[in-house]
């Protein structure tokens, strides 16, 4: 047999250490899950618990106050969640606090958030049913984001087209590179300012004139209020009317004359037609004019002969002298 060279104290310490660590681990886990604490129960109803499990955390204003004890389906649209809450938080949670299902971090476990509300509602006693709001569905958020993204993509595409058009536009480039543009613009603005000033002045004068007119003084007032002038104007207008009538009559006569001439021209009768289209008349007229020209030449010759005649020579000389 071997010598019993063992240290029972060390073995005891070793075994004890193991057992203590095991108990400590079990206790810590239990404490985290609120197994040993003093607790009270609160309830909430939800339409959808979104994967919440028994044992998930319950937070009040971000502080962990308990865990989910039981999840039970009441009917096809309602699920009851029973929560175990530490007694030490009893004096902080009011009955009007709202419960909602959230997530621990972005991809963490599901949890219940108890959100305090305004107002002096009484504190919970245990067993109360807290009001609840449904969680904003991730799918809903993603769907909205998707639409927003689509719109942003469309807008950016349109913007890109516009920018490209602006970049490729030679007119715009010329406009932007035109150094005189600023001067011209400045000048135009100056002119615009002047015009505005004038318009303002005009408006001022107009106002003044109208004021005077309403008071009964000034040219406009005279124009508007003088009856004799009005009578003269009326007379002038009636004269213009009479003139217009005469002009009409004249125009009618002229029209009838032209019509007569025109009809004569068409029919081949009348004076106008004879003048314009009768060839024998024109021949006769031509020979007559030739005879006249011949006569005139003969006459001129006779006159020259007469000038050199001694009887008349004196007379013509005197005439010339008078002329000079």
């Amino acid at each position: 047999m071997k010598a019993r060279n063992i240290d029972v104290f060390k073995l005891g310490a070793f075994v004890l250490a193991g057992i203590v660590l095991l108990i400590f681990a079990l206790y810590t886990l239990g404490k985290n899950k609120n197994i040993f604490g003093t607790r009270f129960e609160l309830k909430a109803h939800f339409k959808d618990v979104n994967g919440l499990l028994v044992g998930n955390k319950v937070r009040f204003s971000g502080i962990e106050v308990g865990n989910v004890r039981k999840i039970q389906i009441l009917n096809d649209t309602m699920i009851e969640v029973a929560m175990n809450i530490d007694k030490e938080y009893k004096n902080y949670i009011r009955v009007n606090s709202i419960t909602q299902i959230g997530t621990d971090g972005l991809i963490g476990n599901r949890l219940i958030d108890i959100v305090p509300q305004k107002g002096n509602a009484v504190f919970v006693q245990g067993g109360e049913l807290l009001p609840s709001i449904e969680e904003i569905n991730n799918q809903e958020i993603l769907r909205t984001l998707y639409h927003t993204n689509e719109n942003i993509a469309l807008i950016s595409e349109e913007l890109l087209t516009t920018v490209r058009m602006i970049n490729s536009s030679t007119q715009l480039s010329r406009l932007l590179n035109d150094s005189t543009l600023v001067d011209n613009l400045s000048h135009s603005l100056y002119k615009l300012s002047e015009t505005t000033e004038n318009a303002s002045l005009f408006a001022k004068n107009a106002v003044q004139t109208l004021k005077l007119a309403s008071e009964g003084s000034g040219t406009l007032a005279t124009l508007l209020t003088d009856t004799s002038m009005a009578n003269e104007l009326r007379r002038a207008v009636s004269d213009i009317h009479a003139l217009e009538n005469n002009a009409n009559q004249l125009l009618n006569n002229l029209t009838s004359t032209v019509e007569t001439i025109s009809s004569e021209l068409h029919s081949g009768n009348g004076v106008a037609n004879t003048i314009l289209f009768d060839s024998t008349l024109s021949i006769k007229l031509k020979s007559t004019i030739e005879n006249v020209e011949r006569g005139t030449a003969a006459f001129e010759e006779n006159m020259e002969a007469l000038k050199s005649n001694f009887l008349f020579r004196r007379y013509f000389k005197n005439k010339e002298k008078e002329k000079n």
Binding site: K2, D7, L11, V15
Partner: peptide
Amino acid sequence: LSEFIRQCFVLGYKSL
């Protein structure tokens, strides 16, 4: 029992 305790010491504690 005593051999069991000795083995606990040798096999358990000494392996720590």
